[in-house]
Amino acid sequence: MKKVLLIMLVMSISLLLAGTKIELSDPKGDDKGPGTYTYPTNPIYVPGSFDLTSATIEDKGDEIEFVVKFNAPVSFNWGDYWDVHQIQIYLDFDHVMNSGWTETIPGTQVMVDPENAWEKVVFIDPHTVPKINGEIDMKAAHMKNDIVLPAKNKPVGKSIKSTVKKVDLGVAEDVDITQWGYGILMLSATGFPGDWCVLMRRVNEYEGDHRYGGGSDGSGDPNVIDMFVDNADGSEDEIQIQYDMLDDWESGMDPEDTSENKLTTIKLVYPGK
C-alpha cells in the first residue's frame, strides 16, 4: 500500500512539475561580449543576430524545451540547418562547489565559477549530428558524455527552440528545473573552426569577413558574444555585469600557444534562488 501511495505521490509531483516554465530576459544592445566585440563584416551577420533578448525553459514531462530569442531573424543561406548561431546551455543540477565541470567546451574560452560547476551542457549548432559528433570526438572527447545534443531544433523567426530529452540529461522526470543553474551563451558557428574550437567562430583583434573584432588574435579571449547574467531580468545593469564577467582575460598572440592565456570566469543564473 505504501508503495502504491509513494508511486502516486511521485506521479502527482511529476504532473505538477510538468508545465513549469522559467522565463529569462537579457537587455538589448549588449551583443559585444566584454563590451568591445564587433560583428564580422559579412552581411550574413545581421545586426542583432547574436543579441539575446529572452529565453524560456519549460518542463514538458519527459522533455525540456528551451526557446532562446534574439534580436534578428535566423537566416538560411549556407548552414546545414541555419547559418551562424551557436548556443550553449550549461546546466548546474546541484549548485554544489566543484561538483561538475568548470571548464567549458573547447573554443568557448571561458571558465565556470567552481560554485556553479556544471553537469551537462546542451549544444545547439546548425551542423549535422555526425559533423558535431566528429568535432566532439576530436576536440572534446574528455567531456563527450556530458555534451547533450537536442532531440529536435526548430529555428523560427528570431528564435531557436530546442527540445532535450530528460533521459539524455540523466535526470528523473520529476526533477524540479527551477532549482538548476543555467549558463546560456550565444556564440557563432562555423564550418571552418580552429584546431581547438568545436565549431565556434573566433574573435580576433580586428573584425574580418568572418571573424569578430575587439578581442585578441590569440586564444585567451572568450568567443562568447552575449549571455544571460545575474537575475536575468533584463535590467540595464546586467549589461555592465556581463561586460565585467567576460573581460577578465589575458591572451598571448599565438592562438596555438596557451601558456600566456588566462581565461575569464563566468557565473550561471539561478532563477529559483
Binding site: T128, P130, K131, N133, G134, D137, M138
Partner: peptide, 9 residues
Amino acid sequence: WVYNFGGFD
C-alpha cells in the same frame, strides 16, 4: 547518407 568520423566528411 551522411557520415562523419575523425574529420572525414
